[in-house]
Design a protein around this nucleic acid. Structure first.
Lengths: 252, 252
DNA sequence: GGTAGGAGCTGCCGCAGCGGCAACTTCAAC
DNA sequence: GTTGAAGTTGCCGCTGCGGCAGCTCCTACC
């Protein structure tokens, strides 16, 4: 069973032009090419196309998609990965919708009050806008990521939201300490980090060297750094230094 | 209270380059420009930027975004519109995730069976991939759209899914009638359309002329036509003709 | 008062991912 | 045998920025 290009275009919703483009660039060659030069696709190509479109919907670039598909050993495993990422992206949109909802409420409130609308925490206007672009967040700590993933799957929606709010609150407390001039090694900062560390060890034992690596990731990992810097400039490095100091002072 | 470009970039997560680009193209000029040429943004600009980023996340092009923002009378109303579209987009991702999930199941089933994986309905591989790109679907029938929207909001997740499946089943039955050679005016086709029409009138009274217009929309409205054509080529026109015949034969 | 570093500015070039032609061939059907 | 739909290969163009270079500015420190 094979299909000509127009049928594949109809079934998948992409244009024939796009399919030709994917052939030209080597991303998705057809199963065979007729003596007349026409392209014919089989089931395997449809499965590949599905993956391509899913990844594209997640904002992955075509060259990167090509690498993922060619490096792929188990198709079902790969699909499970895509599935996870789709759900994460869905949650991001959910968060974005919640942000918009909050903005509406603030807008109406200020309209009722008559004051000209003053935004208290402008950062909050943009929660959920960061494009996830195939978040390979925790690739440096695969086991930890797995553990966290398993816990997250078991959590309810409300629990997940509460967790997220708590982490944000932690970051804001840290930002305030930074703004008020405390060096990273100062007592109140170290108390915060200690609380963070103990929350982490409740999940799993973390060695001093591992914790130091996590601290470095606050700056080195793109996604994490962005999250910190969105709260306040320099916060990522501040968190890293605070962890550094904590490890030196209390874990060695 | 105003912020320099780097602060806005940090808070919103976009680059300063992007903000300059939005100024150059007139999409988002800063609140004021200092004597030194530096750009400064105030709260109103942050609110506009939020809308720009939300719309961009929905796949709306920058020129279109510009038109929407300038045509906007009530900010809160506009935000409510964006909010609805965000939720719709989230649901699309949900559908896509479900499709992937189903593919995984089929893949594992065929692996257990040992047969080389045969796809029964290849179309099903691609449910949810059509980019919604600011679906202005029912703009031709604003009242009907509103009614449907209100019902949809009151429905549970399961109800909504069931409704979607039923509509898909209708389309497939129609496609089979078309494939077996029945003309659009033939009895079994007309029976289908009659059932559709009666389901519609249960929601709201629909005049003959209105129903004819809905029929034309199956072909003229991009989103609807795509949905029909994804099932079978020519199905959109077939549905339109069937409605046309139904109106002529039974509603006049 | 010099100067070093960071942030801002204005160009300008380039790239990804196609869309939209044009010009030609092929296929299926009547 | 003709005709209309569907296929092919090019090539040009667009969008939405990223990434420079080259310059100005401001602040801070010595």
């Amino acid at each position: 069973m094979d299909w000509p290009i127009s049928e594949v275009a109809r079934m998948s919703g992409v244009t024939a032009r796009t399919l030709r483009h994917y052939d030209e660039t080597g991303l998705l060659p057809p199963a065979r090419i007729g003596a007349n030069g026409h392209r014919y696709y089989e089931e395997h190509q449809l499965l590949l196309l599905q993956q391509i479109l899913v990844l594209r919907a997640l904002g992955v670039g075509l060259p990167e998609i090509g690498r993922i598909l060619s490096a792929q050993v188990d198709e079902a495993d790969a699909l499970r990965g895509h599935h996870r990422r789709l759900l994460a992206e869905r949650d991001r949109l959910d968060a974005l919708a919640a942000t918009v909802s909050r903005t509406i409420a603030e807008l109406e409130q200020s309209r009722k009050d008559g004051n000209p609308m003053t935004i208290n925490r402008p950062e909050n206007l943009f929660e959920g806008v960061q494009p996830s672009h195939y978040a390979e967040n925790m690739r440096d700590f695969p086991e930890l990521a797995e553990e966290v993933g398993r816990r997250a799957a078991a959590m309810s929606q409300a629990d997940a939201e509460a967790g997220h709010r708590e982490r944000t609150a932690q970051m804001i407390r840290l930002a305030e300490l930074m703004a008020s001039g405390h060096p990273a090694g100062a007592e109140p900062v170290q108390a915060e980090v200690d609380a963070q560390y103990r929350a982490l060890t409740r999940l799993r034992t973390v060695s001093a060297e591992e914790y130091r690596a996590i601290g470095r990731s606050c700056v080195d990992n793109d996604a994490w750094r962005t999250a910190y810097e969105a709260i306040a400039p320099g916060l990522a490095a501040y968190q890293r230094d605070a962890i550094e100091a904590h490890v030196t002072a209390r874990l060695s």
